[in-house]
Amino acid sequence: MNIFRFLGDLSHLASIFILLHKIQTTRSCRGISFRTQALYVVVFIARYLDLFFRYVSLYNSAMKLFFIASSCYILYLMKIRYRPTHDPSIDTFRVEYLLAPCLILALIFNYKFNFAEVLWSFSIWLEAVAILPQLFMLQRTGEAENITTHYLAALGAYRALYIPNWIYRYFTEGLVDPIAVTAGIVQTGLYLDFFYVYFTKVLQGQKFELPA
């Protein structure tokens, strides 16, 4: 564990608490893509199935359980508790276009051709693009509540912080994980436009609005 990865994990935790806070205080999931949240459930279940056959540390297991449980809880909040506040007509990104290529990538790029490893690789690729329905929705509405942008910033910062962690691990342990690194760079890249607007507008006290 190094400081970059730890801060990345904290940022990931923070993003989930921000999202829960947004849904519960506004009693609404307006502006949040259900499709993106559903993809995260798939990502976490596919990746963290190893909970049952590989023990790394208490930290590792606790975080995995938290990410599985919280992502399922968010789906419950969106689909049942605050269902009327979700507008499916603006959440229209076709997730098949993400699932199918990720499955193909996982079948080609994996560290061992077995069920668990292909599933792991699938979850890594899917995580990289799972934010697209959310960003697509943001693009369509052209604006977002401040709290939603803080959620996205924390979520984007999480994988961005993993990049210095991988550089650090390369120099200290002499190891690279090319699948995670490639997907992580793609994932961070998808946030660049968002980060630009976040830093130049939201953090300067303005509303998040995309140019028309």
Binding site: H12, Y162, D177
Partner: peptide, 10 residues
């Protein structure tokens, strides 16, 4: 075989 994968990452 040596796995390149970081099994300890989330």
């Amino acid at each position: 075989s040596v796995s390149l994968k970081f099994h300890d990452e989330l």
